[in-house]
């Protein structure tokens, strides 16, 4: 049984005048201790998928269909209180904008201590000491003193470390990292990624890593899911995906990564065009409008996700025919 199993998830925002279908029938699994990358442009539904897993969809978002199972238990069936006990203890979250995620008027240490107080039977003093311990563990020097500081007194990297400390506090089985390095400069990025890898090797936590950037996740992830317009369009082991990307969208993404040997300045063009409006999705393939290989049939026929190799699946008409 996988650790996390998202099964045919469909989430939508029901506005008064329109319905935005952000996630449409997404299914995937994360095994215990595995690091999975979930890649897509902004608006592809990757963040909504994450919010659905934690059941923290902002209003008027709704999970319309599907199941989200953690060790076989459907999270959507849990009571509010049960769900609260899952968050932060079994599934922890690391966010992109650490500064915004930290309360500006509460000392850093207290915000980590709050996690212990919420999930374990400890006294405030013990929680504080444990929080200081967590800060030390994520590599913050003079942790006793720094714990009394406020978020704005920390550097960007230290803010992100604080958020990771809060996430690791209760040794979660799954860490969801939503673009945790986007706002940081390159050297700090590497430190944060190393910290996440360390969490996997030391705590055995699985990681679902969300990013819009394939390049960042190549060395981190065991497996990669590519999302486009609310669906998974390709999934497979990292190596396979890099060697033989099948979906034109994946190929486009890979092509826009600057070559390691080439000049770094020389960015290759990103895929031209914009993803479709989630309030008015096309009937056929959702990528058709931007695809270089588009055929007549693409605009009418919505392709299924089909297997093209071991653990490798793609959602494209080009591969549907070969596997009837």
């Amino acid at each position: 049984m996988p650790l996390l199993e998202v099964d045919d998830l469909e989430a939508a925002f029901l506005f008064a005048d329109r319905t935005v279908r952000a996630v449409n029938g997404v299914s995937f699994a994360v095994e215990a201790g595995e690091i999975v990358g979930l890649i897509g442009e902004s608006g592809s539904g990757k963040s909504v998928t994450v919010q659905s897993i934690l059941r923290l969809l902002p209003s008027p978002g709704r999970i319309v269909r599907g199941a989200i199972r953690l060790n076989g238990v459907n999270l959507l069936d849990l009571s509010r209180e049960q769900m609260r006990q899952v968050r932060g203890r079994r599934i922890a979250m690391v966010v992109q904008d650490a500064l915004a995620a930290l309360n500006p008027v509460i000392p850093i240490g207290e915000q980590i201590a709050d996690v212990f107080l919420a999930h374990t039977q400890v006294k405030r003093q013990t929680a504080w000491e444990k929080a200081v311990g967590m800060l030390r563990r994520v590599g913050i020097s003079a942790a006793e003193e720094r714990a009394r500081h406020y978020a704005h007194e920390f550097s960007g990297g230290m803010q992100q470390r604080t958020v990771i400390a809060a996430a690791l506090a209760c040794t979660p089985e799954l860490i969801i990292a939503d673009e945790p390095t986007t706002a940081l400069d390159v050297t700090v990025q590497q430190q944060i990624l190393a910290l996440l890898q360390q969490a996997r090797s030391e705590l055995g936590s699985a990681i679902l890593y969300i990013s819009h950037d394939l390049a960042v996740v190549t060395h981190l992830c065991d497996r990669i899911l590519i999302m486009y317009a609310g669906e998974i369009v390709e999934q497979g082991p990292t190596r396979t995906l890099f060697r033989s990307p099948k979906h034109p969208y994946t190929q486009g993404l890979l092509a826009s990564i600057p070559s390691l040997h080439g000049d770094v300045q020389e960015y290759l063009p990103a895929i031209p065009g914009l993803p479709p409006n989630a309030a008015a999705l096309p009937t056929g393939c959702r990528f058709a409008a931007r695809c270089t290989f588009v055929q007549e049939r693409c605009r009418a026929h919505h392709p299924e996700l089909v297997s093209v190799g071991s653990h490798h699946a793609v959602r494209c008409i080009l591969y549907e025919a070969t596997t009837p």
Binding site: R84, R87, G88
Partner: peptide, 13 residues
């Protein structure tokens, strides 16, 4: 504010 949302994500009461 995002820190409120994140406080929920931390599973606070």
């Amino acid at each position: 504010e995002q820190y409120v949302n994140y406080a929920h994500a931390k599973g606070l009461r």
